[in-house]
């Protein structure tokens, strides 16, 4: 077992036009760990995710994955290096069926022993009856499952979940927590961004508090969830 972290972000600065959205961010995710990024709207959570996967190129700083620098790689290479990205807007291919959506994620030429389709359908049993449904005709929760399944098919070691609970009914959010636990059980590392603290606290071990592009606090999930002061300063209304 190597002791270096799986993902190591240091000094990450990202701009959107002229606005500095991320302002010198440092963060790590260890193997097998689930880490939450907590923060309100506009704190820079989605930007961080997009920087890691390579969709935002206007950035400086270092992003190391498995010891290799990936900050300058295009998204497809980051994906092939072993990072999966589940975007906030889900970005389902609405004109494709669910089966075809999954096909886009399926890696050809590289065996994906950890996440064969049967295993994925075990985690998301509802997918089975949805396979031939057009992407456009799905509820938010169903879309979320498709996009997570699609990402797992790329065979990632680390998965980036950008606000997975957003816009979902509480029952579905609970179901999702179960699915994420299944994924964790297979050894998958997860970086999850959330506004929903209850949900985040159920599944993550460690958390960073992000506000206006800066990390305001980092520590065990437990600490943040129980520290009223922190909570009111950075998360609550």
């Amino acid at each position: 077992m190597t002791s270096s972290p799986l993902l190591e972000v240091s000094g990450l600065v990202a701009r959107y036009g002229k606005a500095r959205v991320l302002d010198g961010l440092d963060l790590t995710v260890n193997r097998g760990e689930t880490v939450a990024i907590l923060g309100r709207n506009g704190a820079g959570k989605s930007t961080l995710m997009k920087c890691i996967i390579g969709l935002i190129t206007e950035k400086t700083g270092s992003i190391r994955f498995n010891g290799a620098e990936i900050a300058t790689l295009p998204p497809y290479k980051v994906s092939r290096a072993g990072i999966g990205y589940v975007p906030e807007e889900r970005r389902i291919f609405t004109e494709l069926t669910v089966r075809e959506n999954l096909e886009v994620g399926r890696l050809r030429g590289r065996s994906n022993t950890r996440w064969p389709l049967d295993r994925i359908i075990e985690i998301f049993p509802n997918l089975k009856r949805l396979l031939d449904r057009p992407g456009a005709q799905m509820s938010g929760g169903e879309q979320q499952m498709v996009t997570m399944a699609r990402t797992l098919l790329t065979g990632p070691d680390l998965i980036l979940l950008d606000e997975p609970s957003e816009g979902l009914a509480p029952v579905i959010v609970d179901q999702m927590a179960g699915m994420i636990r299944d994924m964790q059980a297979s050894g998958l590392s997860i970086l999850i961004s959330e506004q929903n603290m209850r949900f985040a606290s159920k599944i993550s071990q460690r958390a960073y508090l992000l506000e206006r592009g800066e990390i305001k606090f980092s520590g065990p999930m437990q600490t943040i969830a129980t520290n009223q002061e922190l909570y009111h300063a950075h998360l609550a209304v």
Partner: peptide, 20 residues
């Protein structure tokens, strides 16, 4: 309002609940 920002809590909307 607290709930939509912080997620559903089984007891009350109060913030200082321990995570389950």
């Amino acid at each position: 309002v607290q709930e939509i920002y912080l997620g559903r809590d089984d007891h009350t909307g109060s913030a200082e609940k321990q995570p389950s």
